[in-house]
Design a protein around this nucleic acid. Structure first.
Lengths: 340, 340
DNA sequence: TTGAAAGCGCTAACAC
DNA sequence: GTGTTAGCGCTTTCAA
């Protein structure tokens, strides 16, 4: 276990004080240029590496950002994380990541762990069973917190969200313009604002076009492959079938489509389809799936940028919720007019 | 900025020494049970949280594990990370993750940052342009390192790998058993052992069955959607077409299939297909794609477990490379006998 | 331009 | 069973 060298070793070797070395290493103008250069060269020679704890213990800063997500294992989250890591690395911050596994209790544990590690800031996408964030609020103490994707509707924290309402509305509008009049919505757990917003956007588009709102055509599920199949069976059993279906994620949409096709339903002629996320499956299923491009990477980058603004004290009180645009991507699954 | 309370605050409030508080907080048997309880209750009352730097500064341990991956934004990596986080959280370790963006230079920066943060151990999946790990070796100093998925073939580090050779061999064997005799291989960059191994397994299966090895039927590409289409065009132009194709990942395989199908090729009748990874697209493409189930989550968990063994000093010198099995999943894209 | 010295919060001899 | 004390390595007043 070879001991790593410290500023004292450098100081001793140069016959100067540790204080000067410390200043020199920080490129402090107060230290003579010549001395500074010498310090750096001796440091290199000795293989000196600064001890981040000692530094953090003194300064109270860690250049570390905590990230808590419901689950790491998802297309969307990996895009978000990639964006975050890129933006953070640019500013020489490191990321500590952990997952709440959709459990409020585990989420609290994660927050605790992050605070213990004195992260300079915390990014959270809430576990689905988070009743509210009141219990967390006290934990945050003086640490800047930014919520992303799954947030509470609070005015005192910054939220970076994707505009699900608007996207769903535009997506629905598109189906309507393609001639759909009997629209069905297959959504996720409405406890999550993300899914509630998509449903609201859907309803709004119906209203915009004076189309009737039929509660029988709104169904909720867990958006899994199986749920897609179940939904397809449900549709097959309806007397009055929809002519357009919007599903709150691509994965579920695709398996719903496949099952319907197996039973002879033509897409988009009999039923037009649209999903959400722009997963890789969209370009594989035939016909290719119309969807909403959910910008995970951008979301990640933006979230870091906002957090860094908070950390550096430049908080913009008037932009405490940022809505990112998520564009509709039209593909063959919804095209019933003109186009091939 | 309300100052957070320390063991001194607890000590003062209780009229005992900080040392006793420290011991009590660690549940040290030497401290009277009664005192310990009191310490905990006062700690709770004061909202005490242990300062991890001060602790780390003293103990030299951080309960932090560094993870460096080529890129975060991939199905496989998110599964690996999810497995790592789960296993690490179980043992109260946190993960610091960063991505090398496939750049050896950035990878060095990452390693440096991790060492500066005094991670208790480091997990690395190598950037594709890593010439070797000699430059890194000195950086590691006394920190346990485990390579996963993308490793150098060195005997002095632990490697956790997926048995690509065996999986590719079995997968190829399966195609041969389905009657394929003219087999083509579409592989990734052979500089990466993962892809080189898949190719070797493929060749071995040919040898096992006395099938000729035709260099014209081995092609390398970047395994993208576009590369799949390019490969399809190439196949369409061949006079002597293959009757079976193995592609080193599902994504590329699927787009190759789709293009061929568009041009009238029947799968699996004309050409049987198989991929690698078991991505979601496999169950969406028609016919469903035969593939190898690449166990990311298990890989992540195993990697953490091995690292923790190293950290605790229980290094198993005789198991410094662990090969995880990756089972073949047979689906319709390769079934030419009997089955529908 | 540099040095001395205090202290961030915690742990672990060593003493009693 | 508990207290005293000396640092871990760094930064930062204050003084020179």
């Amino acid at each position: 276990m070879q001991k790593t060298s410290t500023i004292y070793d450098i100081a001793k070797k140069m016959g100067i004080s540790p204080a000067t070395v410390s200043r020199g290493l920080q490129n402090n103008e107060a230290v003579k240029k010549e001395t500074r250069n010498k310090i750096f060269s001796v440091a290199r020679e000795l293989g000196y590496r600064t001890n981040t704890f000692a530094k953090s213990l003194r300064t109270g800063k860690t250049r570390t950002i905590g990230v808590i997500v419901p689950t790491l294992n998802s297309n969307f989250m990996s895009a978000v994380l990639a964006g975050m890591e890129t933006a953070a690395a640019n500013e020489k911050y490191n990321l500590i990541v952990s997952q709440s596994m959709e459990s409020f209790e585990k989420q609290k544990v994660c927050v605790h762990a992050m605070m213990d590690r004195q992260v300079d800031g915390l990014l959270i996408s809430l576990a689905s069973d988070s009743p509210d964030i009141e219990h967390l609020r006290t934990l945050f103490a003086n640490t800047p917190v930014v919520f992303f994707d799954r947030a509470e509707n609070t005015d005192d924290y910054t939220n970076i969200l994707i505009d699900n309402f608007k996207s769903a509305r535009k997506l629905t509008q598109h189906l309507i313009e393609q001639g759909c009049t009997r629209l069905m919505h297959i959504g996720g757990n409405k406890m999550r604002k993300v899914y509630a917003d998509r449903l609201e956007g859907f309803k709004q588009a119906l209203k915009d076009n004076n189309l009737p709102y039929n509660p029988d055509w709104m169904m909720d599920c867990d958006l899994s492959e199986n749920a897609g199949i179940k939904a397809a069976e449900f549709i097959l059993n309806m007397k009055d079938k929809p002519d357009g279906v919007i599903v709150a994620n691509d994965h579920c949409a695709v398996h719903c489509m496949l099952y319907l096709q197996k039973k002879g339903i033509k897409i988009p002629q009999d039923i037009a389809f649209a999903g959400f996320n722009n997963d890789a499956v969209c370009k594989v299923v035939q016909p290719n799936l119309t969807t909403v491009d959910y910008p995970g990477h951008t979301l990640g980058e933006t979230t870091i940028q906002m957090l860094l603004k908070h950390i550096s004290g430049g908080i913009l009180a008037n932009t405490n919720t940022i809505l990112l645009r998520a564009p509709v991507i039209v593909r063959a699954s919804s095209l019933r007019k003109g186009q091939a």
